[in-house]
Design a protein around this nucleic acid. Structure first.
Length: 563
RNA sequence: AGGGGAGUCGCCAAGUGGUAAGGCAUCGGAUUUUGAUUCCGACAUUCGCAGGUUCGAUCCCUGCCUCCCCUGCCA
């Protein structure tokens, strides 16, 4: 079987820039990118956009993409986050080969660069307090003032900086700043801090350092050291680009790097409705136990997505579909859900599950008889074969597939109506049994013996309705979690505290009746429960013989909308 | 208000001087033993607004409007 040629990647402004670089041979046609997370949290859907962008560009231009941890702030970073980030990027299907790096691998080089900047008059040690520095910085409308320490001699700066490194000063006593322009209209150029004192131990370098570079200083240097060509980041760093260029230019003059230097390019981050992607809010949801941990299937983390049953291929569809641009935009959650459905529809095996069971009794079917019916594992792919499903006198069907008085357009079970028991017989509904409170306890019908699916007479009776069922005697009951969107409104927190917008029905745990074939599902096996949606055997709580399923997403339902 | 960005169909998004791609959604219709899938068809005389340049402007110029980001020793 030959795969059709994949469609050419959609044009976007970053590809246009790269194409120009290729034709001008700016880096000799080389494309080298990096995905640079800070290991201070779990990756979320928004990171998927960046991952597919950076790794995708590298793949399409025969380049490489590094996985690089920007671990410049030891107070916030942990090995646990490093591990989970690695697992998530791998899960999405990317391989960085030997290109796994850490900012902390280059602390020596960064330090040497800093000494050079001091010696060349481009950096100085400031001894203002944080509050004083803020006051000297000016405001959006007013220029800043030079710090009284701005004109220390290179020798004095160097001495102070070395003593900072040696641990002679407490946190906050001094800070190394780039000497640029305190009157710049771009506040990021008003002598930004590049090194601060932090007596904290680092997940990677331990206690080797008590001064740590700022991200804005470390990031360009890391890019330049590894010869990154296109340093792709989000829009909020646009104002930082002049500093990125200033720094690398100075260091290239100092012989640390050769030109052409890496080029920073900014794109719009992902905004998605019905979730929150801010790290702060995600942490709050977890810590205040509004969800069950970082991998809760409702959470927009990649670990949550995995347990939810979302697929890497679905994320690929999604990122291809939403494109890349510089316009702030909001993607509706339904787009992501549709992408997951598209992928799952192609690959998930079909199975039967009755989620809200009510008994259907076939009055003219012999009490102790049973027989096999055969259902295809995938209607569009016969190669996937069929399986046997036992049929008998008493079946579980969905409560909503019967109506005593049917609404307009309803074509399922109601007195006098015929429907097909999918893969089995056509039955005619005769009524229902009720308890003393009027609750329906069983639905009654008779079957038409000549209409069994797969037999010559199967189509002798045409019916519009087609419902799924499971033999009571053969059914297997298991826990199923019905997940829905975490928030009930498109923009949580817009009108009130975001916690108040949590969807109270985001998780419903039920015991469902499953067909026998589902009992031995392996963790992470994905299925379509026919007429319901896509479900996955939970990665953590499910095991063969004792399955637990999570609903990934429902099937599209055009009947609900009509009602 | 200073600086940096963005405004093209309901949602994304190409196009950047030659007369508006594509996807999703939506609406028709066909197929269908999932009210699913699939398949066909429809879907911007118009590109934030107002002027100007031009034979011709979404694209160039001028002015205006709206939205986003920036005053961490966070990233």
């Amino acid at each position: 079987m030959s795969e059709p040629n994949p469609p050419a990647p959609a044009a976007n402004f970053i590809r246009n820039i790269i194409d120009e670089h290729i034709s001008s041979s700016k880096w000799g046609g080389r494309v080298e990118t990096r995905f640079p997370p800070e290991p201070n949290g779990y990756l979320h859907y928004g990171h998927a956009k960046s991952i597919f962008l950076n790794f995708g560009l590298a793949r399409d231009y025969n380049g490489v993409c590094h996985l690089r941890f920007d671990d410049t702030n030891p107070e916030k970073e942990e090995q646990e986050y490093v591990d989970s980030i690695i697992a998530s990027v791998k899960w999405l299907g990317f391989d960085w080969g030997r290109h796994l790096y850490y900012a902390s691998d280059y602390f020596d080089t960064m330090y040497a660069c800093a000494e050079y900047l001091i010696q060349s008059g481009n950096a100085y040690v400031d001894s203002l307090s944080a509050e004083e520095m803020r006051a000297y910085r000016g405001s959006l409308n007013e220029p800043g003032q030079d710090s009284p320490y701005r004109n220390r001699s290179a020798a004095e700066n160097l001495d102070l900086f070395r003593r900072m490194k040696a641990g002679e000063f407490p946190d906050g006593a001094h800070v190394l700043r780039a000497r640029i322009d305190m009157a710049s209209p771009n506040i990021n150029l008003r002598d930004p801090a590049i090194y601060r004192i932090k007596h904290a131990s680092h997940h990677n370098t331990g206690d080797a350092w008590c001064i740590y570079p700022m991200y804005t200083y470390a990031h360009p240097i890391e890019d330049a050291i590894k010869h990154i060509t296109h340093s792709i980041c989000t829009l909020e760093f646009e104002d930082q680009r002049p500093f990125y260029d200033w720094l690398l230019d100075k260091l290239a003059d100092g012989g640390f790097f050769t030109r052409p230097l890496p080029q920073q390019i900014e794109f719009a981050r992902l905004n998605l409705t019905y979730v929150v992607l801010s790290k702060r809010k995600l942490i709050q949801l977890v810590e205040e136990r509004h969800v069950d941990g970082w991998d809760d299937p409702r959470l927009p983390t990649l670990m949550g997505a995995r347990r939810r049953g979302f697929t890497p291929a679905g994320f690929k569809r999604f990122t291809d579909q939403i494109g890349v641009s510089k316009a702030d935009s909001w993607i509706d959650m339904s787009v992501l859900e549709a992408c997951m459905r598209d992928d799952l529809n192609e690959h998930a095996l079909r199975r039967i599950a009755v989620l809200d069971p009510v008994k259907l009794i076939i009055d003219n079917y012999p009490e102790n008889q049973s027989e096999d019916c055969f259902a295809p594992n995938h209607p569009q792919n016969p190669d996937l074969g069929k399986r046997a499903i036992p049929f008998s006198r008493e079946l579980w069907i969905e409560r909503e597939d019967f109506a005593e008085t049917p609404p307009k357009g309803y074509f399922r079970l109601y007195p006098g109506n015929k429907v097909r028991l999918r893969y089995g017989y056509v039955v005619e509904c005769s009524g229902c049994d009720k308890d003393e409170n009027g609750n329906i306890t069983a639905v009654r019908c008779t079957y038409l013996p000549d209409t069994k699916s797969g037999t010559p007479g199967a189509d002798s009776v045409k019916v519009k309705g087609n419902i799924h069922w499971i033999s009571v005697r053969h059914a297997y009951a298991a826990e199923v979690r019905l997940y829905d969107r975490l928030f009930a409104v498109p923009h949580p927190g817009q009108a009130r505290d975001f916690l108040e917008d949590i969807n109270p029905a985001s998780k419903t745990v039920i015991r469902a009746q499953l067909e026998p074939a589902l009992q031995n599902a392996e963790p992470e096996a994905r299925f379509q429960f026919e007429r319901h949606g896509y479900f996955v055997a939970d990665l953590k709580d499910s095991r063969p013989g004792a399955p637990v399923f999570n609903r990934t997403v429902t099937l599209k339902d055009s009947w609900i909308k009509e009602k």
